[in-house]
Nucleic acid binder design. Structure first.
Lengths: 286, 286
DNA sequence: TCAAAAGTGTTGCACCTACACCCATGG
DNA sequence: CCATGGGTGTAGGTGCAACACTTTTGA
């Protein structure tokens, strides 16, 4: 169904459901009809196929964040409670608009800092993984919104209470979350799949850990995200024999995780990929 | 650098460099300020951080396609010659605008059909892989364009001569391409990396083959994309012992690839992932 | 009869799995 | 002392790399 009103004049309804002012974007010149990605017109006055002025209906571009952390042996995801219709009161992924002069990744880092209460520098150092872009025309009932989804992996952080938007944010156990607003259920599932897969063949797991960590903590990341138990001795060998995965912290003494023998500390190494990969146990059989 | 003209009125220059009419999109109502991905305003009249009316500057959303095929033992990519400034005469990835009522994937399939001259049904069955979204504010010198990149894998096709945009399209050897317009060099490299990686742990290689293929053809896909030689006997065993990767075509006799013993024919199986993966030879050592 | 590609067999190594066992600490 | 987690050792299995070999076609 085409939106004919875009060709006949402004559509009705400019009010914001949340009561905020609804600024009208000014009319703007049409793009040239051929962009970095658009089909270039052939030589001559021919109008290329697929060209439609409606194509220039402005899209809103946003980012959605699936922020994961491992907390008390469970995978948690950062969710925010919606304060406006639609889905008022529902939980949703944090996110926001991409501003005119920023890239989607910068927008994602900005939102990440806002929602977690971290400084922009700290947030800038965190691992951000672009997952997918969601562009179904009906994914937002109010307007056309194209959203770039990012997965962020953070070590265990305090409950977000940084003021601002962070006040609405909560760490929620991944498997105890309720239904999410919009298509955020799908986005979160995709992000989870991506993270699980990347643990297999990259050093990504260290992104869930503080700067210095024990092999037990690192192993718990795998076990928590994958939902399996790994053999401790074998995991240790695999990590230590993969060059560049971790590097020992020599001078530092040892740290205990409550009971048991104190463990040696490690830092993330320089390597980014694992060769050969560290396959999930199910991968062997499935 | 902000584009002040968007807040002060229409900017100059509405004409298309190619001489086509430059339709002006009508003014439209502002979005509610909170979208499926936008920060929901907190309870109360507070204006959430990060809110900026400029965020509603309309973005153009496009798709870019990296269409790969294996031809005469070389990896080829489909490129189009630009017929308008900027980058007039340069080569670029095919692509185009996402229309108001279609998803990015549907737009990609539509463009794929247009550029290759295939029917929409045929193109609809081809493998499309969303690679990444490119959103640098300056990636197009004329306006803000956010582009969703897709990689498409097709079996060897005739030279695109379907009329329309396809007339400008050419199959180009991947390693003999010139510099590309915009950031398409980066997009193409990302798409190539993704395809190469996915060959390792998915059954994607069959997408490069016709419906019925020999194991030699399948092996050549790997060898061509990865740029390595694989041991024929070991490759055969790996493929045949991976359940669901390929299934033999019983009744069909055999087919020759020129000289040599005729080979048995196979079809793609039902599996989509490879467990354990088929690692690149370098993966073992690197 | 030779080149080229398909297909089978075999050996050895690399890596992973599983499990047994010792070490160090807190209760 | 024992429970808990860190750390070491070792035997067996799986799967892959490497390479030798036979088969079947076209030139």
């Amino acid at each position: 169904m085409r939106r004919a009103e875009f060709h006949t004049g402004p559509a009705p309804a400019a009010g914001d459901p949340a009561g905020r002012p609804g600024p009208l974007p000014p009319c703007r010149p049409a793009p040239s009809g051929d962009s970095g990605s658009a089909p270039a017109p052939g030589p001559g006055p021919r109008v290329p196929e697929g060209y439609d002025p409606g194509a220039f209906e402005p899209f809103a571009v946003t980012v959605d964040l699936a922020v994961f952390t491992v907390r008390e042996g469970r995978l948690h995801v950062l969710l925010v409670e919606r304060g406006a219709e639609p889905y008022l009161g529902s939980w949703a992924l944090p996110g926001g608009f991409v501003l005119p002069r920023e890239s989607a990744e910068r927008a994602a880092r900005r939102e990440l800092a806002e929602e977690t209460g971290l400084s922009e520098e700290t947030a800038g150092a965190l691992h951000l993984e672009q997952v997918r872009t969601y562009s179904d025309p009906d994914r937002d009932p109010r307007m056309r919104v194209v959203s770039v989804a990012y997965a962020a992996l953070v070590p265990d952080l305090p409950e977000p209470r940084g003021g601002g938007d962070a006040a609405r944010a909560r760490w929620t156990p991944y498997d105890a979350r309720g239904p999410l607003a919009f298509d955020h259920e799908l986005i979160l599932a995709d992000a989870y799949d991506r993270v699980g897969a990347k643990l297999e063949y990259t050093c990504l797991a260290t992104a869930f850990c503080p700067p210095e960590f024990t092999l037990g903590e690192l192993r718990q990341v795998y076990e928590t995200v994958w939902g399996v138990e790994l053999d401790r001795p074998n995991f240790r060998r695999k990590v230590l024999t993969t060059p560049g995965f971790v590097q020992a912290v020599e001078k530092a003494p040892r740290r205990t995780g409550g009971r048991g023998k104190p463990a040696a500390l490690y830092r993330a190494g320089r390597a980014t990929t694992l060769h050969p990969p560290l396959l999930r146990p199910e991968g062997r059989t499935a």
